[in-house]
C-alpha cells in the first residue's frame, strides 16, 4: 500500500522540487536586487572613503592593465593577420583598418575586457567579501554601526564601474595598434590606408555601442562578483567555510562571464 502510494507520489515530488527550486531562484534574485540597492546607496553615503576608492581603482583598474595589454595586443594582431588573409583574396586590403577597428570597438574590446576583469578582479573581490562574511567581519562592522557597504563594498563597486569603460578604451587602442603591427609592418598594408579606412568607417554610433556595452558589462561583472561574495552563506549547495568561498567565487566568475556573453548578443541585436 505504502509502496503504491509513494510511486504515485513520484511525479508530484518532481513538481515539488521544481517549485522549491523556482522559489529559491526568485529569492536569490531578490537578495541580489536588495544587495544592488545597498551597494549603489553606499556610494552616496558620507563620509566617503576616497582613499579606499583610490586603492581599489589602482587594484582593479591599474592592476588589470598588463593583462588587458597582452590580451588586446594579441587579439589585435590576430585580427590583423586574419583580416589581411581574408581581405587579400578580394584585393580589399585597404579595408583592414576598418575591419579591425570595428570588430574591436563593437565586440572584442567590451567583451574580452569584461571577461578578463571578471577573472582577475571579480574573483578577487568575490573571495575577499566572502571571507569577510564567513569570518563574521561584516557582522562585526554592522555591530559597530559601520555600514559595510559604505566602508568597503561600495568603493569596490564604484572602482570597478569606473575602471571597466576605461580599460575597454585602453583595450581598443592597444588592439588597433596590434592590428597595425600585424597588417602594416608584417603584411605590408599601406599605413595611410589602415588609418583612413578606420576613420571613414567607424561612426559615433559604433563607438556608442561599445561604450554602452562596456558600462553594462561593468555593472554585470561587479554586481554578480561582489553580490555572490556578500551572499555566500545564502547560496544553496555552497557548503561551509573555505569551500563555500571557493565554490561561490567560481560560480561568480562563471555567472558573470555567461551573462556578459548573453548580454553581448542581446545588446548587439537591439542596438546595432
Amino acid at each position: 500500500m505504502s509502496q503504491t502510494n509513494s510511486e504515485s507520489m513520484a511525479p508530484l515530488r518532481w513538481v515539488g522540487a521544481l517549485g522549491a527550486h523556482t522559489l529559491y531562484v526568485l529569492g536569490d534574485l531578490g537578495r541580489m536586487g536588495v544587495f544592488l540597492f545597498w551597494a549603489v546607496l553606499g556610494v552616496f553615503k558620507r563620509p566617503f572613503r576616497f582613499k579606499e576608492l583610490l586603492k581599489q581603482l589602482s587594484f582593479i583598474g591599474g592592476g588589470s592593465m598588463t593583462l588587458i595589454f597582452f590580451t588586446a595586443l594579441s587579439s589585435g594582431m590576430v585580427l590583423g593577420l586574419q583580416g589581411y588573409y581574408s581581405l587579400h583574396k578580394f584585393g580589399a586590403e585597404g579595408m583592414l583598418g576598418s575591419a579591425v577597428s570595428l570588430t574591436l570597438i563593437m565586440e572584442l574590446g567590451p567583451v574580452l575586457t569584461a571577461l578578463m576583469v571578471a577573472g582577475r578582479a571579480g574573483s578577487a573581490m568575490c573571495a575577499e567579501i566572502g571571507i569577510m562574511r564567513i569570518s563574521e567581519q561584516i557582522d562585526a562592522l554592522e555591530c559597530m554601526a559601520i555600514d559595510p557597504f559604505r566602508y568597503f563594498i561600495s568603493p569596490k563597486f564604484l572602482a570597478a564601474l569606473l575602471s571597466l569603460p576605461l580599460l575597454t578604451a585602453f583595450f581598443d587602442v592597444i588592439g588597433i595598434l596590434g592590428g597595425y603591427i600585424a597588417g602594416v609592418h608584417l603584411m605590408g598594408v599601406n599605413s595611410g590606408a589602415y588609418f583612413s579606412g578606420m576613420e571613414q568607417s567607424v561612426t559615433n554610433h559604433d563607438i556608442q555601442l561599445g561604450v554602452i556595452k562596456s558600462f553594462i558589462f561593468g555593472w554585470l561583472v561587479v554586481w554578480i562578483c561582489t553580490g555572490r561574495g556578500y551572499l555566500v552563506q545564502k547560496i544553496r549547495g555552497a557548503g561551509f567555510g573555505a569551500e563555500s568561498v571557493s565554490k561561490v567565487t567560481t560560480q561568480a566568475v562563471v555567472l558573470s562571464s555567461i551573462s556578459v556573453l548573453v548580454f553581448d548578443y542581446l545588446l548587439t541585436a537591439v542596438l546595432l
Binding site: M132, S135, E136, Q137, A140, C143, A145
Partner: peptide, 19 residues
C-alpha cells in the same frame, strides 16, 4: 538599528578581527 548598535560591544566567536 545603527543607533541601537552603538550601545553594544561584541566579542565574536572567531574574534572577527579585520585581517
Amino acid at each position: 538599528l545603527q543607533e541601537q548598535r552603538m550601545r553594544f560591544g561584541v566579542l565574536f566567536q572567531g574574534s572577527a578581527l579585520f585581517d
